[in-house]
Design a protein around this nucleic acid. Sequence first.
DNA 1: GCCAACGTTGGC
DNA 2: GCCAACGTTGGC
Length: 137
Amino acid sequence: MAYWLMKSEPDEFGWEDLIARQEAEWDGVRNHQASNNLKQMVVGDQAFFYHSRQGLEIVGIMEIVEKASPDTTDDSGKWVSVRVKPLRPLDNPVSLKKIKSDTLLNTMVVARHSRLSVTPVTPDEWKRILSLASDQK
DNA sequence: GCCAACGTTGGC
DNA sequence: GCCAACGTTGGC
C-alpha cells in the first residue's frame, strides 16, 4: 500500500466538504507530475488531506476508493481523477512549518516542491506525521 | 497582496 | 526547437 499527500484550498474544497460528502472525485489536477501520481494510486492507498493557501496543514486521512479514470471536469480527455473517501481527521493538524522544521520530514516532496499538489509520502514520513498528530501538547 | 518558482504558449 | 512573454500556484 502506498501513501500520498493531496492539496486542496479549503475555500474551494476543504476537509469539511469531504466529510459532508463522504466520497468525492479528486478532480481538477492539471499538472503532469501530479497526474502521474494519481495514475499510480491503487484502491486502498491512503492519502493525507492538506489545506493549501489557507491553513497550510495536514488535517485528515483519506483512502483511495477508485483508481484513476478520466476527469469529468476535463473536456480535453487528457487528465484523470481518482475517487476518495475520508477515513479520519488528525487529532492535531500537522503544519507545513512543523514539517519543514522536522529533520525526518524536511526532505518530503511536499516541502521541496510547493507547487506540486499530489505528492508521494514514504512509510517513514507517514508514521512520523501520525506520531506528531497524536502528540498531546 | 506579493512574488518566486514553475509550467505553458507562440513567434521566429 | 529555442526562449521570451505570459499565466498560475501556493508559501509567505
